[in-house]
Design a binder for these strands. Structure first.
Ligand SMILES: [Mn+2]
Ligand SMILES: [Mn+2]
Ligand SMILES: [Zn+2]
Ligand SMILES: [Zn+2]
Lengths: 142, 142
DNA sequence: AATTAATTTGCAACAATGTTGCAAAAGTAC
DNA sequence: GTACTTTTGCAACATTGTTGCAAATTAATT
């Protein structure tokens, strides 16, 4: 099961034309293990301090560039990342789903099944992307 | 007209039970002058370095607490603030409008006239607040 | 208008977060 | 295994945000 994940991760990296390194594998493992979005500090904690901070920054940036992960907007200074489950894998992100932030447990989740609604903006605005972040109480927190 | 604004600002501060200080007046002036959201660094630049960084942080936090300004979600580490134009003035924020981030000029605007759409989330999720941030090209940038 | 009381400010010191250049290490291709 | 390319870790620095505390400012009272 762990090795199953490992195989999947190696395949993902290769299909993104990225070399397979310990840091990248570990960070992807943490993404797959976690049930919510992660931020930079989480990787330092969860990885047991085994990787340099700079390497984590660079790895996350690489994953962003390759469309392996996406960012989730927040109103604080933290930057949250989640793995892209579905379509988006190549150049552009297509994570057209809603994000949910639980005020109880603090977790941020991708609601893959909840589509972004269609918006009608005032004339003159050219829409490229719509982000929806819902806050409230999640399923697990009742 | 500048003094007209000043009167308005003094009234706003007093109605929020805040004492009228140079920093608070100046920051509110900058909000009213600007046609988009501002972030912390903007106040340092726009005010001509006349106020201490710490004071700006504390002032913005105070304005948040009093419902004078609201935050706008971003995917970078910056925190953007906009003045609350309409209802929300007391305890809670009611800025149920869409925010727009222009990829050309970098400005962030409140689209007060564009309502947040109604969402249907999966069972078990309790919705408290919905944030919508649209990115694209704004009216001014054609 | 002067005194008093409460609030706000600026400074220093610190913590956390993010960036860049560069040499050593690891990965990939041959 | 060797050569070539990419990635990593370290150091050094920049930016952003927080806290305690004394001095300054504002508001309330006489
Ligand atoms: Mn997502
Ligand atoms: Mn707004
Ligand atoms: Zn929860
Ligand atoms: Zn624009």
């Amino acid at each position: 099961m762990a090795s199953k994940n490992k195989e999947l991760i190696v395949e993902l990296l290769k299909s993104s034309k990225l070399s397979v390194t310990d840091t990248r594998v570990k960070i992807l493992e943490l993404f797959l293990k976690s049930n919510g979005a992660l931020e930079h500090a989480d990787f330092e904690k969860l990885s047991g301090k085994s990787f340099d901070r700079v390497t984590i920054y660079r790895t996350l940036q690489t994953f962003l560039d390759k469309g392996i992960v996406h960012k989730i907007p927040t109103t604080d200074t933290s930057v949250r990342y989640a793995i892209c489950r579905s379509e988006c894998r190549e150049h552009e992100h297509h994570d057209h789903h809603v994000h949910f932030r639980c005020e109880e447990c603090g977790s941020t989740q991708c609601l893959e099944e909840t589509d972004i609604p269609v918006l009608s903006l005032p004339k003159g605005y050219d829409v490229h992307n719509v982000e929806v972040v819902v806050s409230g109480v999640c399923k697990a927190c009742h």
